[in-house]
Amino acid sequence: MHETALMESVLVILRESAKANGIQKVTKVKLKVGELTNALPEALELAFEAAKGDLLAQDAILEIEPVKAQILCRNCQKISTIDWLNYYCSHCLSSNVKIIAGDELLIDYYEGE
């Protein structure tokens, strides 16, 4: 259940930013979650619900944008979209690749008043 720990980190970041921006209540949070991160959207939702209280409004919305995994081939310099299990360039089949998307866990933006 590391989604609970992730949501705690989200709240720490939001609390700091909300204070700096004079925001009392957060009404919407938008996350970008890479599909290689092991973070389950359902579990994040549950942790978000549990975290509602002093900062998150009772009707606050969590939006999660899943991000597909992409690799850049160091051999042919082309980008491939990959599934979980094949870290090969789909153009030249090289395994000398670098992950360029799909491993991110980001707070994109939030809304509040």
Partner: peptide, 14 residues
Amino acid sequence: MQVQLTTNILKAND
């Protein structure tokens, strides 16, 4: 009010 962050959630751990 919308605040753009693009902040890594694990930044504190990292």
